[in-house]
Amino acid sequence: MIKAAFNERNYSRAVSFVQKNAIGGGFFVLILLLIGYLTYSTIIWMLDDQRLPLSRIILQGDLHHVSALDVQRAFSQLEHVGTFMTQDVRELQVAAESISWVSHAAIRKQWPDTVKVYLTEHKALAIWNGNVLLDTYGQLFNADIGQADDGLVKLYGPDGTNNEVLDTWKTVTPMFKELELSITSLVLNDRRAWQLILDNGVRLELGKESLMERVKRFVNLYKKLGEDAQNVSYIDLRYDTGASIGWFPKQELTQENLNDKVL
C-alpha cells in the first residue's frame, strides 16, 4: 500500500512536471512564432517602396554647373531605386559621379525619405586638345566647354601627356607676367617640340630642349624690341643663341636690320 501510494505520488508529480513544461514550451514556441511574424512583417514593411520611398533630394556643395535636376536624372538611370532601408548609397554615389561636371560625390540617407548629396565640381583650368576639359589636378573630364569660363588656356599634346603639358604651362606662365603677356595656347607636338602662342598673337617656337632657357631668352629679346614688338608675327628660338623673328608683311623689308639690332 505504501509503495503504491508512493508510486502514485511520483506519477502525479511527473504528470504535473510534464504539463507545466508543456505549457512553458508551448508559450516559448508561441513567442518565437510571434517574433518571427513581427520580424517578417517589419522586413516586408521596410521593403515596400510605397512605405519608405526615397522621395527627397537635398543637394549641397559649391555648385556652378550641376543642379538638382541633373542629380535626379542620374538617379533615374538606375535600374531600380530601393527604399530608405535597402538602397545602397554606393550605387547613388556612382550615379552622381557620372554627371559630367562632378569630381566627387558624398551620399548619405536621412530618415525617413531623404537623400543628402554633397557634390564637388571639377574646376576647369584648361581645354585639352580642343574638346576635353582639364581640371586643376590635371584630370580630364568631358563636359560642355561652352559652360566653362571664358579665356581658358588651350593645351595640346599626345595622349597621356596632359599632366606634363599642364605642369609646363604652370611653370612658364609667371615668366611672361613682367611683360604683361599671357599664354593662350601651349602645344607639345608628336616630335616632343614645344610651341606657344601669346595673347598678343605672337607665336614662339621653342623646340625640344632647354625650354626654360629659351623662354628667358625671349623675355630679354622682347624687352629690346620696344615698340617694334607689336609688329612681330613669330619668334623662332630653336637656336643655341639668338632667335629668328618673323614680322607682319609691312615690316618684312626691315627684318634684316632689326634682327641685327636685337640679336
Results as ranks from 00 to 15, higher is better:
Tyr118Ile: 02
Leu52Lys: 04
Asp190Asn: 15
Phe141Glu: 06
Val219Cys: 05
Trp45Cys: 06
Gln251Cys: 03
Trp194Asn: 02
Gln230Met: 10
Glu213Gln: 15
Gln50Tyr: 07
Ala95Trp: 03
Gln255Gly: 09
Ser67Arg: 10
Leu69Ala: 06
Ser244Glu: 01
Ser41Ala: 12
Lys261His: 12
Arg214Lys: 12
Arg13Trp: 11
Leu263Tyr: 07
Ser67Phe: 15
Trp45Ala: 09
Tyr239Met: 13
Arg90Pro: 02
Glu121Pro: 05
Gly201Ser: 04
Ser103Arg: 09
Thr161Asn: 09
Leu52Thr: 07
Lys223Cys: 03
Lys123Ala: 13
Met175Gln: 11
Ile31Trp: 04
Arg214Asp: 00
Leu188Cys: 08
Ala4Cys: 10
Ala96Ile: 12
Asp199Gly: 06
Tyr137Glu: 15
Gln72Ile: 11
Glu209Ala: 15
Asp49Ala: 14
Gly24Trp: 15
Arg90Ala: 06
Val202Asp: 06
Asn7Leu: 13
Glu8Val: 11
Tyr239Val: 13
Asn189Gln: 09
Ala95Met: 12
Glu180Asn: 13
Lys216Phe: 07
Arg203Ile: 06
Val219Asn: 02
Glu180Arg: 07
Gln60Ser: 12
Leu69Lys: 08
Gly160Val: 05
Glu252Gly: 10
Arg56Gln: 11
Tyr40Trp: 12
Lys20Tyr: 14
Thr114Arg: 07
Ile57Val: 09
Glu252Met: 11
Val215Arg: 03
Ile2Asn: 11
Ala243Ile: 01
Ala105Pro: 00
Glu8Trp: 09
Gln139Tyr: 01
Ser100Asn: 10
Thr114Pro: 03
His65Lys: 07
Glu180Gln: 13
Thr161Leu: 10
Gly201Phe: 04
Arg191Phe: 09
Ile44Gly: 04
Thr42Phe: 11
His64Glu: 13
